[in-house]
Amino acid sequence: MQTMMQQMINGLSLGSIYALLALGYTMVYGIIKLINFAHGDIYMLGAFWGYYAINYLHFGFVGALLSAMVMASLSGVLIEYLAYRPLRNSPRIAALITAIGVSFFLENGMSFLFGANARNFPQVITTKTYYFFGVGISNVQLLILFTSLVLMVLLQFIIKQTTMGKAMRAVAVDPQAAQLVGINPDHVISFTFALGSALAGAAGVMIGLYYNSIDPLMGMVPGIKAFVAAVVGGIGSVPGAAVGGFLIGLLETGVQAIGLSAYKDAAVYLVLILMLVVLPAGLFGKRQREKV
C-alpha cells in the first residue's frame, strides 16, 4: 500500500511534466495538423536556459521558470516562422520531415555549442522530503505538481475565455471561416506555438530540478512519451493531453514499481500501439466526424 502510494506520487510528478509537454503537441496538432517533433527539444532549450539563468544570472526558481518560458516561447515562435510557415501549403509530410530535421538541428546544435555531456542542474531549491505514514513527498515534487496545475488552469482559462483562445479554437475547426471573420491564422498559429513552447520550457526547468541532470538529447524520450500521452488523450484535445500525461507518468512509475524498470519505455510504446489499434481517436478525441 505504501509503495503504491509512493509510486502514485512519483508518477503524478513525472506525469505532470509529460502533461505539460503533451499540451504543446496537441495544441499545435489541433491547429496545423503537424506533429511537432521538435517539441521535446524546446523542453531541452528551456532546461538549458534555466541552467544558465540560475548559474550565471543568479535567478531563483520563479525567475528561472518564467524566463525559461519566455525563451522557449520565442524559440517555438521562431521555429514555426522559419521552418514550418514556408511549408504551410505543402503536403503534410513535408512539414513532418522538416520537424524531424529541426529536432536534429537543435540536438546537434546544442551539443556542438555546449557539449554533449550531461551536466548537473543547479539546485536552487534544497530538496526536503516530507513523510506522511511512510510515504515520502519532496518539496520539489510538490512544486512541480503545484506549478503544473497552475499552468494548466491558466492555459484552460486562456483557451476558454480570451479572444485569442477562442480564435485558436476557431482556426482549429475551420481556418477558412476564421479568415472570413477577420482572424489572421498566422497570428493565431504563432500564439499557439508560444503557449505550447512556454509550457515545454517550464517543464524543462522543473525536470532539471527533479532529475538534477540535463543534456542536449534530454528531450528525445520525454518528447516521444508526451506525444504518446497526447495520442492517448486524443490528439487535438487539451483536457485529453493533460489526462494522458498523468496516465503515462503513472504507467511508467508503475512498471518500475513491479520490478520491470528495463521495460518502462517499452510499456509506453506498447500503449501507443494498443491505443492506435483499439481507440485511435484517444480517450477524449472526436470520433471520426469529418465534415464534407
Binding site: T163, K166, A167, Q176, A177, A178, L180, V181, G182
Partner: peptide, 30 residues
C-alpha cells in the same frame, strides 16, 4: 473584412465546439 466586406460562406461554416455567443464574438474579431 476590416474594410467592410463580410461573407457568409456556402455551407455556413459556423465554428463547431464554440458556443453561439463565442461564434458571434469571433465575428467581431476585427
Amino acid at each position: 473584412v476590416k474594410m467592410g466586406i463580410s461573407q457568409v460562406p456556402e455551407g455556413r461554416h459556423i465554428f463547431a465546439g464554440l458556443t453561439v455567443s463565442e461564434n458571434l464574438q469571433m465575428g467581431a474579431f476585427g
